[in-house]
């Protein structure tokens, strides 16, 4: 019917970026399962997947009661040793039986939630990306716990260089005529509606996580620039407030680096409108210009006669 997921993204609670080997240890959340790491073009580490059992109402825009039973797939991601994510999703399918079956039935279908009774995909998609009623499937809480799992690792020093809120991206993917709709709701909440050709594959999850990472980077850089209060604070102070961005964020921008080729057109279309990379570059230039002007100012004061 449809796939729904939620990604929570935040700044890794550590003073500096962590090494590849530390990433492996932080993400080793299941005995005997390997952490997958890719190094090009940016270090990207993926924990093993874990399942969580659920048996609850699914969010429906019509507020009709739809019961779903099955498992949620979750994993943790660390990008560039700096950005941490907790990500969960479920594939929603119709149940062939009209009653709850023994648990072994659901474990033979990891990541699938079976709907008992009638439900319309559009109703669930609207419900999930809208305002889900309490008591409904809460993927956000599950993803939040997986992000906590990373952030709570004893290997991290919990001395993050700046404070930044987590963002949440709630997404729904369906098969059909290709389209993508990215919506900013509040400071932290985003939704994504994606219609892709062909059947769902986990590559769609990679795309959503990649979008969430870059949306968080952009949001964070905006916040840092805003906090610097360029123009209303002395140049040196503003420049000092911008330094964390240079130290920790600017090199992480790698849109669609890990997205499968058939899904890159979705990124491309978001690049046209609203133009994530365009906004990013404009912010980066602003940061660099501030630092450059401040450096020039410092140089000129230090060369003034009598001020040595």
């Amino acid at each position: 019917m449809l796939v729904m997921g939620e990604v929570h993204t935040g700044l890794l609670q550590n003073s500096g970026e962590i090494s590849e080997s530390t990433c492996r240890q932080v993400l080793a959340i299941t005995a005997g399962e390997t952490v997958r790491v890719s190094r090009r073009p940016i270090v990207h580490a993926l924990s093993p997947e874990r399942l969580t059992g659920v048996d609850c109402a699914l969010p429906a825009a019509s507020r009709s009661r739809v019961r779903g039973v099955g498992t949620v797939v979750s994993r943790c991601v660390v990008t560039g040793g700096r950005v941490a994510q907790g990500s969960s999703y479920v594939r929603v399918v119709r149940s062939e039986a009209d009653r709850r079956l023994p648990w072994s039935h659901y474990l033979a279908r990891p990541g699938v939630v079976e709907v008992l009774g009638k439900a319309k995909a559009a109703d669930l998609a609207e419900g999930f990306t809208g305002d889900p009623a309490p008591g409904c499937l809460d993927l956000g809480a599950v993803s939040g716990r997986f992000l906590d799992l990373v952030q709570g690792s004893p290997l991290l020093d919990r001395l993050a260089p700046f404070k930044m809120s987590r963002t949440s991206l709630r997404w729904v993917a369906e098969t059909g005529e290709p389209s993508i709709r990215f919506t900013l709701h509040s400071e932290q909440d985003r939704t994504l509606r994606l219609t892709h050709p062909g059947p769902f594959t986990p590559a769609v999850v990679d795309l959503c996580e990649d979008l969430a990472t870059h949306d968080w980077l952009l949001t964070s850089l905006l916040v840092i620039v805003e906090r610097a209060r360029i123009g209303s604070t002395p140049g040196a102070q503003a420049a000092a407030r911008l330094t964390p961005a240079i130290d920790h964020l600017l090199h992480l921008w790698m849109p669609a680096a890990r997205v499968e080729e058939w899904l890159t057109p979705f990124w491309d279309s978001l690049e046209r409108r609203p133009g994530f990379t365009r906004q990013w570059h404009s912010l980066v230039n602003r940061v660099r210009d501030q630092i450059a002007t401040n450096t020039l100012a410092l140089l000129s004061t230090s060369t003034e006669p009598g001020r040595r």
């Binding site: 005995a31 059992g53 039973v69």
Partner: peptide
């Protein structure tokens, strides 16, 4: 331990992940 980490609890009705 390998098996313990692979246990996924059978959820009672009302388990919504919260």
């Amino acid at each position: 331990r390998l098996v313990e980490d692979r246990l996924v609890d059978d959820p009672p009705q009302g388990t919504d992940g919260s």
